[in-house]
């Protein structure tokens, strides 16, 4: 805001009526872009923003590595007898946790865009209305994939040996990314409703911490008190982790997979329209 750039051109620029007239020359207007093409353009924007502000990739690189190392070596010995054993159990879960935690940045990005006024321009363009939001989320998908790959690589180095092989791990990551895309709509909606970046962050932390910790990510739920087991059982993250684990282990659990697909569809069906309603009202 406070940076002012003085440069020779800035001093001498005199708007010339002819050059401005030339750019105003009525010309053939291009056809309205398809929903897909508009969304991909916003996805391109998200990628460009990563290029210009690479620091934002910390949360999908450094943070997951830290989590994996910390929990493997902190709990591994105590919980599974050895860190190597524990890693086989933990890795799919810590991957789910890291990626699901990252979904809150979708809400932050939308909130910042609104605060900066750039959404006004997008909204005044004749394009498929959800494109700006979908495009942002497509950029986020890229981050989810990146975080998953980083964790997989760290895991492999530490001794993670998934029974499902390359295909199993890829399927697990795929399922996780699809679910997270649907889950992000919740935060996008919050980003539209809540006043500031900080409140978006606060609300999402409040939901994401219990959701990821009170699950089967770190320990077997059968060791927990009964009332907690009830919560863990209905926690969607538990189901997602179970499904991802089964895929990576090469023993797909159809029941859990179905559950995740239904949850994904339900999230999209509920929060997609709600988010668009909030977006159109803004």
């Amino acid at each position: 805001m406070t940076t002012t750039v003085t440069e020779p051109q800035e001093q001498t620029y005199v708007p010339a009526a002819e050059t401005i007239g030339a750019v105003l020359d009525p010309r053939e207007r291009p056809a309205r872009p398809s929903a897909w093409s508009a969304s991909m353009t916003f996805g391109w924007r998200a990628v460009l923003k990563i290029k210009h502000v690479p620091e934002q990739l910390f949360d999908v690189t450094a943070f997951p590595i830290m989590m994996t190392l910390m929990f493997t070596y902190l709990f591994g010995g105590a919980l599974a007898g050895s860190t190597g054993e524990y890693l086989q159990f933990l890795l799919p879960g810590i991957m789910v946790q890291s990626v699901v935690m990252t979904t809150m940045y979708s809400g932050l990005a939308v909130n910042i865009d609104i605060a900066k006024g750039v959404f006004d321009r997008f909204k005044s363009l004749p394009i498929w209305r959800p494109a700006a939001l979908v495009g942002n989320l497509l950029g986020d998908v890229l981050r989810y994939v990146l975080a998953s790959v980083v964790i997989t690589v760290v895991g492999l180095i530490l001794g993670f040996r998934p029974g499902g092989g390359v295909m199993g791990v890829a399927a697990g990551i795929g399922l996780l990314v699809v679910f997270s895309f649907a889950f992000s709509w919740i935060w996008t909606m919050c980003g539209l409703y809540l006043r500031s970046e900080k409140s978006v962050m606060g609300v999402s932390m409040l939901v994401l911490f219990p959701l990821t910790f009170l699950s089967n990510i770190f320990v077997d739920p059968s060791t927990m008190p009964g009332w907690l087991q009830v919560f863990v059982e209905v926690n969607p993250i538990t189901r997602l982790v179970a499904a991802v684990r089964s895929l990576m282990a090469g023993t797909p659990d159809m029941g859990e997979l179905m559950w995740v697909f239904v949850a994904t569809a339900a999230l999209l069906a509920i929060f997609g329209p709600l988010t668009m309603r909030a977006y159109n009202r803004k």
Binding site: R45, K49, V53, V118, F119, D120, S124
Partner: peptide
């Protein structure tokens, strides 16, 4: 086309 009171630009780009 609308140019509002506050620049509708992406600052990072």
């Amino acid at each position: 086309g609308l140019t509002g009171q506050y620049a509708s630009l992406d600052e990072d780009m």
